[in-house]
Amino acid sequence: MKRVIITAAAVALVGSLMLLAVSEWQNAFTLVSLVVLAGVLALSFLYFEASIIGTKQIALIATLSAFTAVSRIVFAPIPNVQPVTFLTALCGLALGPFPGFLVGCTSAFVSNIFLGQGPWTPWQMFSWGLIGLFCGLWGKNGKKPSPVAFGLACVGFSFLFGWIMNLWQAVAYLRPFTWLGFLLTYVTSLLFDLMHAAGSFLLAILFYEKFYKILHRYKRRMDVTYIDTSLPKEGL
């Protein structure tokens, strides 16, 4: 804990130093957002370490992340199918907010090892993690939305994903920064976002029921970990 506090203090110090030193707000925003982002990701992994998540759950999270990453890699040649959004959302829904966040985060990082790591990696990790988190909150208490509702949510998430990516892109690289330019960045990415959304919607409509059932079954197998040392009579 002491270490975490020291780290946080150091980060805050560096952050404020940057703000002081940097004159343009755009660069200040870029830097501070990077620091905050790194902090959020680091803290979530620290939380993971401190949580009660055991070997079995780790294996499940890793498996789903690998599955998601592989789907992303194998579908990369098909331009409008971006399965990560749908799969992360589904994992969040079936497994809960934190596992959902982890699946989104790690699959983004890992698939980028194959597709190209870059300044966008932390942002993708964050955005997809967020999608998993939201869906996890949505699916709390075992709620299961209808395929259309889930599909529409995936459409929303696709746009959310695109917008988070754009925001940083625009602020970090647009000179001079104008609201028009900001808007235009969104407009140009609209086509990609639309394709992303359409693909996610189709995936949701076509895959949702089947995949939810599979995940739900394993989730149950995962949860039941009671150890009973005496067998009830009727069990025999």
Binding site: T225, Y226, I227, D228
Partner: peptide, 10 residues
């Protein structure tokens, strides 16, 4: 069995 898989044991 049973510490990883859970379940009922006697």
């Amino acid at each position: 069995v049973p510490y990883f898989y859970g379940g009922t044991v006697s």
